[in-house]
Structures are given as C-alpha cells and as structure tokens.
Simulated scan of single mutants.
Amino acid sequence: MTQSSPEALLEPHISIQHGPAGPYPIDEGVSETGMRVAGLSRGRRILVVDSEPDGAQSLVCRLRRHGHEAIGVERGSAALQAYEDVDLVLLDLELPDLDGLEVCRAIRSVSCVPVIVVTARRSELDCVLGLQVGADDYVVKPYGFRELMARIEAVMRRAQWQPPTAKEILHGRLRIDVRSREVSLDGRQVALTRKEFDLLSLLATHPDTVIPRKRLLQQVWGDSWSRRTVDTHVSSLRSKLGDSGWIVTVRGVGFKIGNG
C-alpha cells in the first residue's frame, strides 16, 4: 500500500490514539452514504489484528468509511484483551508476540465471535490449520477490498444462521445437540467449528439425501465461497469424526451423511 489510489484519497480523516490494547481510531463521523455503499443498516464493530501499522490503519479507515466501527491492534496479546467487545475479528497470522493460529485457537476456546484470517500465508496446509483452529474464513493477501467486504457480510450472515428446529439429531452413533451446538460420537464429545457444526447438522437433518454443493454453499457459506471451501470443511469433519465414511461424496452432485 505504498502508492495512493484514487479511492484511498477519498478516505475520511481518522485520528489514531494509543491505548493498552493498541492503536484505536477516533470516530470523526461516518456518512450515511458510506453505510448505503455497504448495504448496511448499521455498522459492525470490527477488530483488525495486523502487525503492519500502515496496512492496518488503511484497512481500519476503509472499514469505517463503509459504516463499520473498526479498531486496530498490532499484537496477539492485545487482540486477546480486545476481542470480547467486537462483532468480528480480522486476524493476521504473522504477529510479533504470538502466532496467529494460537490467538485464533484461544479466542475460539471461549468465544463464538466470528474470526476471518487475513494473511500472506497461502499454502493449503496453512488454510486447513486456520480453519481447524476455528477461523470462519481464510483470506490471502493481497486481496480485493470488495471481496473482503463480501466475505465479512457472508460470515456475519452465517453467524446468524440457525440450524433445524429439532432439539436433537440422532444418526447411528452420532448425536447432535442443536441447542448447545455439541456433537458426540459414541458418547465422546467432538469439538467442531461453527461452520463444521452447521454443515454436519444440515447433512444429518436430511439422511439418505444427497445435498448439492450449491445448496451447501448457499445455506452454510452464503454463496461467496469456492468449491475448495466445501471440500476443506468436509475433510476436516471426516478427520474429527475419525472416519471418512461419515460424509459420503457423490461425485458431480454433492454430499450426504454416512454411517462411519
């Protein structure tokens, strides 16, 4: 972000003050136009965790221009102090004090706040690890800001998605408690991320039915995801359930629940 773009010149001026959890932008007013551009009825409080001050400040400014209340910190320890009061966390993995994966794991162990990893780490392994420790999405730098906005909206829609009205889903040795969002296999609890739980619940609600990939994307991921997204989460579910037979692939169509 060394070269100013025409769009960047339109960013509103936002002062930065430093506090215990890092630099926080001071709101000097967000126009109604900015909120209409994003299609929002209200802004969301977003925590940007990034060790690069220039990049973090630029992202914070652009988020605020689009109607969000964004704050920025540069260290993982600061993120662990600030996440409780936000609606969404944008988390870099390259932090000076803690590994971003550990920060994500720590947040997910005690909170359901949505987390989107935004990082330069682009390998498939890094992506899988990020999703397995609880990230709701994984965005690789450099990225398009419009894409990031779309992913933020998709993640927030999914966070509000409610699984089927049944209190409990029983499928062979698998028990899914919808109210507590807990899954157990042979009486042993299986820790799942929000998206993994929603995916498994959707499949288990329609036993012996092949659910098309497109429907999975629409109901669990909100349309803005790729084919690889479903495959990655199916792979993670199979690993956590200990048997690939729990999720059956029907080539060219989609997936259905199996019997392990």
Rank of each mutant, 00 (worst) to 15 (best):
L199H: 01
L174S: 02
D50K: 03
D99F: 15
Q17F: 13
D50N: 09
V118D: 05
V248H: 07
D99E: 14
L91I: 10
I211G: 04
V103T: 04
C61G: 09
E11I: 00
V117N: 03
A166H: 11
P96L: 06
T165H: 12
R151Q: 05
E102T: 15
Y83W: 11
D27Y: 05
I116M: 07
T2K: 04
R188Y: 05
T209Q: 13
R65N: 10
R215L: 14
R108K: 15
V234F: 05
S77G: 14
L125C: 03
Q160L: 15
L63A: 00
Q218F: 12
R62A: 05
K214F: 13
T193S: 13
P163G: 11
D136K: 03
G76S: 03
V183W: 04
E182Q: 15
D198H: 11
T232I: 14
I211Q: 03
M156K: 13
A166F: 10
R228D: 12
R75F: 06
V253N: 10
P20L: 08
R36W: 09
Q17T: 11
Y83R: 00
I169E: 00
L216C: 08
T33D: 06
V86S: 01
G252E: 02
V133D: 01
A78Q: 09
G252D: 08
S109Q: 15
P12V: 09
V48E: 04
T165E: 14
R158K: 14
A191L: 10
T119R: 06
T33G: 03
R75T: 12
V220I: 15
G242V: 08
I211Y: 01
R179K: 13
F145K: 05
V139A: 08
E196H: 06
E124D: 14
L9H: 09
R188D: 14
E182M: 15
K167W: 10
K195E: 01
D54Q: 07
G187Y: 05
V49N: 06
Q57R: 10
E147F: 13
V178S: 03
I14C: 12
S58D: 07
